[in-house]
Amino acid sequence: MDTVTITLKKVPGLYLECESVTPDKFAGKNAEEIAALPCAEGKRNYVLGDWFEIAGAAGATAADTKIVVNGAGTDKCKYIGAWMTAGEVVVNGTADMFTGAWMEGGKLTVKGDVRSFSALQMKGGEFIIEGRAWNYLAAAYRGDWRGMQGGTIRVKGDVGSDLGTFMNGGTIIVEGNADIHVGTHAEGGTIIIKGKAHRRVGGQMVKGEIYVFGGCDVMMPGFKKIEEREIEVDGEKHVFNVFIGDLGERHPKSKGEVVYGHLYTLKE
């Protein structure tokens, strides 16, 4: 795997649209060709070379390409790793909105935080956030009904509101706490919150699994406890209270059985 290191020369005044910073766009290019890829600051069009020092050359394919993003001001870069299908990206700092959005494969690591709408409608791959994530992590785009389809996200810190809205598949692991609206409208997938969730967890959820180790500050009224069960989750074995819901929502049938969403909270 060949590594390309790009380092911001200065902090952008507005926000930089870095849709070109993906292994797919870099693949098969040398430093000079990478420098010629487009980016935009506000409504002004630039090339990556205007903003980044570029060292190294990409591999022949996206899968053979690793990108390291350095420098003060990475928190002013949007769309890093968006639509990536393979390869690896590491951001040594915080990244702005839409990081890893519509990602389909490969591995994306952000050493700092990610801002809102990251991993939006993610389809596959692995996304590791070492800091915290803002709102709408792995949600559907505003207005859309097709949320996260696959892949894995691990957040070491807390997440904001509207985590995994319209989630259909894949796994999200949050090692910290979650704010309001978790898995709203979910029709599949798994959300694991190691800390606590604030409130409105699983609202209008049709299908899928939500584990909240630290409990919910306020439970949704549409969830009903059916049993207590020992389950292994993310390598830890615990006894959970098992709830079904959201009972206020339309639920499909599969093989004669009504399908519900499941919410699990740790038994004290």
Binding site: E19, W83, Y141, R142, G143
Partner: peptide, 10 residues
């Protein structure tokens, strides 16, 4: 609002 992203492509 999602109409401006067609099938995931910007």
């Amino acid at each position: 609002p999602e109409d401006k992203f067609r099938l995931g492509e910007r």
